[in-house]
Design a protein around this nucleic acid. Structure first.
Lengths: 227, 227
DNA sequence: CGCTTAAGCTTACGGTGTAAGCCTGTAAAG
DNA sequence: CTTTACAGGCTTACACCGTAAGCTTAAGCG
């Protein structure tokens, strides 16, 4: 019965580790939001005292760095052979989906530069795909940067938008009565026609708007290809 | 001598006010960074106790909202008659410069939706300019959103990049020795040729890269104009 | 003058990150 | 087998945070 010797069997007590700490942090933050991540809370989740965490993690900032690293690893890096347009598109959607799965991560990721292995390796892969596609060296860098800017910028806003259809309709109603006297008529008209108010069946709210900008950028990049 | 009556003349003691609190907060944050903004710190800056602030401001979150509002007001809104390309470009650069002037603001602005009068009025103006330019209604919304995504996304990264030339060179050196064994060759090559390493006299570091993406987007939008 | 009331102050509470040091079970060394 | 070292947990403590509750003072007004 006893795996090794005694283990007192009262409680399994798996030993702590950086890995386990970060996993628990991720679970905690996904469930209760980033503002509920405190060293004491996190420790409690692991049935341990706060200061014990410091044996496996330098400080809270290191926990945040670890979280970012976990999230970055969730993002798909298309294999090197992939045609550049498809590769860029898949990457963009993967970033977006990953962040929407962990909305708290949006601010975190960009606020700490922390290159980190994941980011470097990602950058190198993307650049190699662009190079193979025939882009000039300085265009590779800029295309990479530009796509990331757009994607992160878009998603950063998106995480604050209403996800439930009822909330979306309510927002329009409230805006309408706020602007009852015809202030901001352009804004009003545009909102009424916003694509996220009339979704095709099965369509998710802000997908189309995201894709629009993405394709516009990819089109623009394609024109920069020699010939 | 006495302006009104007594004033005890020992200390002028201008009365507190929401306005004064926010101005002081802005000054504090610009000087010592966002992490040094605490109610006690802020109060001290005004020669006052922390709890006194709450007579003019609901709570710390309201202070942050106020800061965002101040920053948004610093951004230029081109007048309605402006040709659309110039208007969009000026707006983009104004956003970028404003945020670079207050780097702490980048995270703050996007993290709190808080439409706020400034944002609404800005949106309406931009949309009207796009409408007058002849863009279809649903394109107006998307063009607006896309530009903002790109600009905020770009600047959000930029605030973390090295500003001093020496730091920039050092970064390349450190990266080089980190990748000594030829890992990530594409990354290495691209970095060596990055535009911010060979600046024309008077040129600021990341201007060209920003403009590149901006023009690419504007070009793409222009193609969407009927005819 | 006296009253009302707003503006500033004091105190206090429950939270935070983390420095310093203790305690104990396990594993290596003799 | 015994002794020792130490890793991995715990306890205590400190300085700071946002802010609730209530007190004090000063200004404005009849």
């Amino acid at each position: 019965m006893a795996l090794k010797k005694k283990t007192t069997q009262s409680s399994p007590r798996k030993p702590l580790s950086r890995e386990r700490v970060l996993k628990a942090a991720l679970a905690l933050v996904d469930k209760d939001g980033i503002e509920s991540l405190s060293m004491r809370n996190l420790a409690a989740k692991l049935s341990v005292e706060a200061m014990s965490l410091y044996k496996h993690v330098a400080n809270k900032d290191a926990v945040l760095d670890g979280l970012v690293e976990l999230i970055l690893r969730e993002m798909e890096i298309p294999p090197v052979g992939t045609p550049w347009r498809e590769a860029m598109r898949r990457r963009a959607w993967s970033v977006r989906h990953t962040i929407l799965r962990h909305p708290w991560a949006s601010v975190l990721i960009e606020s700490r530069l922390a290159p980190g292995e994941a980011r470097l390796s990602y950058a190198d892969t993307v650049l190699s795909i662009l190079k193979n596609a025939g882009f000039a060296t300085e265009v590779q860098y800029r295309a990479f940067q530009m796509l990331d800017s757009y994607v992160y910028g878009y998603v950063l806003q998106e995480v604050n938008w209403p996800t439930k259809e009822s909330d979306r309709k309510m927002l329009v109603v409230r805006l309408k009565e706020f602007l009852h006297d015809g202030r901001y008529p352009n804004l009003m008209k545009v909102i009424e026609q916003a694509s996220w108010l009339k979704l095709a069946p099965g369509e998710k709210p802000y997908d189309a708007d995201f894709e629009f900008g993405l394709q516009l950028i990819l089109d623009g990049l394609e024109r920069l290809l020699p010939r």
